[in-house]
Design a binder for these strands. Structure first.
Lengths: 212, 212
DNA sequence: CATTGTGAACTCATTCACAGCG
DNA sequence: CGCTGTGAATGAGTTCACAATG
């Protein structure tokens, strides 16, 4: 019985990692897994695994462990990835195109159903995935028509906020932002940032201090 | 005088954000900034900004604020990005190619000086940036010769660990991993992961719970 | 006198340790 | 008996609140 307690943000991140490992184990034919083994695979503490799962229910069998497929299904439901999610990519440079054709995303249920740009050379042309590139001012109609739930921003930094505002305006309230910009969003909206240079900065910092 | 206290990991991430905002402000001609303004720009608490900086020294002027350019220079030094860092990309699919040609990275001093793949169709050919694609078993020599410090992995997940091991073996101990794989690394080595699907999972989770 | 720098208070997250149970 | 589930203990990180000061 799910304790109604506040769930730590890092728990969600870890659930995603558990999910992937369970997927791999399932592939490899494993039927059961202990918190210890799953923890080892995800490089966390076994108690952490049990606590994380404990926020959402009792999924294990004492003395035995967790049923791999069953736990996978449970986490799928928790993360709400037991369904497809339509996405749209704005900014069809090299990075945007790479994401568009990235196998991983549709496999996991993230379908890119629309792409936007402002470059007149691109707008109107067809992507390798068979989508006609739309102008960002066509966003509102596209979002409604195609039931888009997540906006992915791969524009240059200078354009990112503008594009985000278009997305919000079109009724999207979840954004995955690849541009190195802090996006200002309304309270009702979510932004997840993926910023390479921040991660590289962390590496250089640690490389020059005595590691860790 | 830098207090010799343990520095929280999130502090480094935020320093990178401060750095970018200072860069932008510097561009826009601002000379001074208060912790309050910088905090607002980075969407954090002003006390957080002061505490973060406080770990490394006293950079401000009481009653006035911080000198934009000076603070920028200080953070540059802290993050060790006041110099160039040579990188290598392994896995020249669409994502790897996109990163290779990404303007942002060389601008910030991250120079890709070598690229690796295993595909015989790719090895030996020349990238748009003028690099001859090498086979991963040529890594050791390349790393020494070209003084590569950071390895970037953009291979499919199944190859990631193998490529990481090649990197470690070649004497690299910092890796930026774009494949959705938990990489096992020796204690002396650093891995930063950039995993889109985890971030998308966070969005879907939050979208289906009452936001946040 | 506005704003920094920082100990102290607080909030959030992880780990321990063991009771509960199949 | 072994492993889960969880309250209690610990640890990490953030925010408060105010003294220090240019």
């Amino acid at each position: 019985m799910p304790k109604l307690k506040k769930i730590p943000k890092p728990t969600i991140t870890r659930l995603s990692h558990y999910y992937r490992q369970l997927e791999l184990m399932s592939f490899d034919g494993y039927r059961m897994v202990s918190s210890e083994k799953l923890a080892w695979l995800c490089q966390v503490n076994p108690a952490q695994v049990r606590k994380d799962l404990g926020y959402f229910g009792e999924f294990g069998i004492r003395g035995v462990g967790y049923d791999v497929q069953q736990l996978q299904a449970q986490i799928k439901k928790i993360l709400a990835v037991n369904r497809d999610w339509n996405t749209a990519i704005a900014g069809l440079g090299r990075l945007g195109s790479a994401l568009l054709q990235h196998k991983n995303l549709p496999e996991r249920g993230f379908k890119c159903v629309a792409v936007f740009d402002v470059d007149p050379k691109k707008v109107g042309t067809v992507t390798p995935t068979g989508l006609v590139i739309k102008h960002i001012n066509e966003m509102k109609e596209a979002v409604e028509e195609l039931d888009i739930k997540i906006g992915i921003i791969t524009t240059p930094p200078a354009e990112a906020q503008k594009v985000a505002d278009y997305f919000f305006d079109a009724g999207i309230n979840a954004i995955l932002n690849f541009s190195p910009t802090r996006i200002q969003a309304p309270d009702c909206c979510l932004v997840e940032n993926i910023d390479f240079t921040v991660r590289l900065d962390i590496l250089t910092y640690k490389l020059t201090r005595g590691l860790n």
